[in-house]
Design a protein around this nucleic acid. Structure first.
Lengths: 110, 110
DNA sequence: TATTTATATTGCAATATTACGATATTAAAT
DNA sequence: ATTTAATATCGTAATATTGCAATATAAATA
């Protein structure tokens, strides 16, 4: 054991879990926040922003990219990273959906 | 190594990461969706809804509770679980914040 | 009080994640 | 052509997560 039983769940559930999991590390939250703060795509500089080694940061960037939360394009000898909106909209939609449901049936129990 | 360097990040970053991580598994997404679907708190029955053993489900419920995404109160010999709104609002706020920022500076690059 | 029912905990094996040093790659600059 | 700079990959150790059988706990019911 140890492996998640992805095939027992719906595609949507697995997709949301992948997105959430990608944000389940403070370094990756920090990367998203940094990309947001600097107003634009950032070519280089991400490594210097984080208290982690270059290979570790590279790995975290790869995970965010695989999950569809950021995208990176080659820009000379550095890479230009920025937030990938569709990915973020998808997970944001999940929370909005929950929030709307909760608003409708407030305090019915508990 | 292998342990996350939580002390290198802000409290807010760690908090958001814990919330996201708790949702980083399809079974836990399924639990949240189920609690939402049934309109109210559910006493029992969660185990039967998931394609996992009772101990495994119990463990996932514990993680959601620790992260502050659900709450459970004892109700006779079963336990009544429901969504914990403050936890969900916190992570929802993060995505709204991102979305607002992105709306302001659309297509500046990439 | 014994049994049933619902949930939690323990212990453990399989797998995944985190982190980093060493090394590779690739494009710019000299 | 070499060197420099930025990023990726490999290898590996430490730790965390996933899943379940077995067992414990605690309340309801017979």
């Amino acid at each position: 054991m140890g492996a998640t039983k992805t095939d027992h769940f719906t595609e949507s559930q697995n997709e949301l879990a992948i997105l959430a999991k990608a944000l389940g590390h403070p370094a990756r939250i920090a990367i998203i926040e940094y990309l947001l703060k600097v107003d634009a795509c950032i070519c280089g500089d991400i490594v210097n922003e984080l208290p982690l080694s270059q290979p570790t940061v590279s790995q975290h960037l790869k995970e965010l990219k695989n999950a569809g939360l950021i995208k990176g394009s080659i820009e000379g000898n550095s890479i230009c990273y920025c937030i990938n909106e569709p990915g973020l909209e998808k997970i944001k939609g999940f929370f909005e959906h929950i929030s709307n449901h909760l608003a409708k049936k407030r305090n019915e129990c508990c």
